[in-house]
Simulated assay, not measured.
Amino acid sequence: MPGRAEGGASRRPLLGAFLATLAILTVTAPAYAGPLPAGFVRLADVDPTIRQDIRYAGRENFLRRKVDGYDAPACILTTQAAKALSSVQKTMTAKGLTLVVFDCYRPARAVADMVRWTREGGPPDPQWYPTVRRGDLIAKGYVGELSSHSRGSTVDLAIADATSSVHPACGAPDGTTLDFGTGFDCFDPMSETAHRPLPAEAAADRKMLLAAMHAAGFRNYAREWWHFTLAKEPFPKQRFDFPVTAD
């Protein structure tokens, strides 16, 4: 009995420490489920005039389903990236145009979901990857095992107006974007920013987007005309995994 009592007493500090640790974890964990981490904002709070069409929150994307981590069709970016994008929007609105964003911050869990999906294999998809098998999308550089989107300062976007009626053969259909030669997420050499030949209008629209984004401090990923990262991003070596939420 004395031995058991002493053993019980010796375990109480350990139990107390465990409960204290558990309490700390319980308090801190929801920081990723509600308020955004420091340095991040919802684009709508910075510039509500930018149109949002977040494709991975729905079914109109190359997975043809919602992607893990997208709990709402909302654009989240670092504060610096959002403000820089707003400056591009001002340039566009002066021309009677608007930016439309397809993807912004992307949780690391979403990237992992995409990678798992590619490994399931399958034939080419005439809408999204017409000349590549699903299992080869990583090797061909169309899907990354890591993504700059998870750092919060990368955005996929196009320019739109109220009169365009473009229905690209490859990539995301969007009736109001200007003609860029392909749609968003067309995994094909045609999507390379400098791809030639292109129809004159598509080449001009890519040039306009590239120039406007460069002027605001973004650099383009040469394989995708729609993909831009803020050159002076605040988290260049850090990836995040909080979910995309509306509020």
Rank of each mutant, 00 (worst) to 15 (best):
D136V: 07
Q80H: 10
T98F: 05
P35D: 13
L137H: 08
Y142G: 02
K207Y: 01
P13E: 08
L43I: 14
A194G: 03
R59G: 03
A94I: 03
H214A: 15
P124E: 11
P199Y: 02
A162W: 04
M92N: 06
S10T: 13
D174W: 04
D174P: 02
T78H: 08
A231M: 05
E233D: 14
P107R: 10
A204C: 10
T131Q: 12
Q80S: 14
A194Q: 07
G141N: 06
R59M: 07
H227A: 04
N220K: 01
D125V: 06
E120H: 05
T177K: 07
G8T: 11
R133V: 10
P197L: 00
G3K: 11
P199Q: 09
V88H: 00
S147E: 08
A112K: 06
G39P: 02
Y56I: 03
R65L: 12
G8Q: 11
P243N: 05
A202G: 13
C170K: 00
A162C: 07
R12L: 15
I159N: 02
G16R: 11
R196A: 14
S147K: 05
G181C: 07
R64P: 07
A74F: 01
A139Y: 12
A108D: 14
L157G: 01
A20P: 03
R55L: 11
V67H: 08
M114E: 13
G96D: 11
A162H: 10
A33H: 12
G135S: 14
M92F: 05
T154E: 04
Q89M: 07
T49K: 08
A31L: 15
Y221P: 02
G175P: 12
V111Q: 07
R59K: 12
L25A: 10
Y70P: 06
R219W: 07
E192N: 07
R42S: 01
L157N: 02
H195P: 00
V88L: 01
V46Q: 03
G16Y: 07
G171Q: 01
D68A: 14
P199R: 11
V244K: 05
T154A: 06
P35Y: 06
L22V: 11
R119M: 15
M1K: 09
S150R: 01
L157A: 08
C170D: 02
I24W: 14
Y70H: 10
